[in-house]
Nucleic acid binder design. Structure first.
Lengths: 111, 111
DNA sequence: ATTAACTATCGTAATAATACGATAAAAAGA
DNA sequence: TCTTTTTATCGTATTATTACGATAGTTAAT
């Protein structure tokens, strides 16, 4: 046990969950917000900004990169990260596709 | 270690992360989608629908209830759950507040 | 009063996530 | 070449999540 039973769910449900998980930590939210403000950032910036250890920041950056929300390119001795605009737009559509499904209830239909 | 350092982040960052975490499991996505379709549901419906044990479903329902995304009312012997429309709308605004912050980059500004 | 139906909680095993020190690796500059 | 700067990865301790059986509690029906 303790293992998510992925095969019980649809592809969309798993995809939404994986993307939500990538946002499910305040450090990763902070990284994304920093990127949205500055357009690019390097690991070292974030170490100063967030107050977490360099190894921890690198780990969070990798998770965001794994789901495709950010991308990185080598810039001399450092690494430049930025938002992947296509993926960013697609995650927004995916979430809103769910959010928009709300319907108002008839009498006695809701709780 | 292993403990998220909540105090390093803003209230908004922590709030976004907590809400994202509540969506970070396919079973909870499935529960919400089922609620969006049917307007209400009971634990037993979901046990049949999802194929997880009753105790597991109940645990997921509790997490969604804890963040306020759903609410429940007693209906005879069973429990009727439904989406909390106010919270649903507020989470959508919160996420879109972040999603919408993307800006297009000038030349050489991105990676 | 007993039974049936349904849900919540407890206890617990298995797995995942978080954080960081230590170390490796790669590029730039002295 | 050697040092400096920067990032990634490994190893690991701690905490959190997931899943489920067992059990208790509640309401409705018999």
């Amino acid at each position: 046990m303790g293992l998510t039973k992925t095969d019980l769910f649809t592809k969309e449900q798993n995809e939404l969950a994986v993307l939500a998980k990538s946002l499910a930590h305040p450090a990763r939210i902070a990284i994304l917000q920093y990127l949205l403000e500055s357009n690019k950032c390097i690991n070292g910036d974030l170490v100063n900004e967030l107050g977490l250890a360099q190894a921890t920041i690198s780990q969070h950056l990798r998770e965001l990169k794994n789901v495709g929300l950010i991308q990185g390119s080598i810039e001399g001795v450092s690494m430049s990260y930025c938002i992947n605009p296509e993926k960013w737009s697609s995650i927004q559509k995916l979430f809103n596709g769910m959010f928009d499904k709300i319907q108002n209830c008839g009498p006695g239909e809701c709780c």
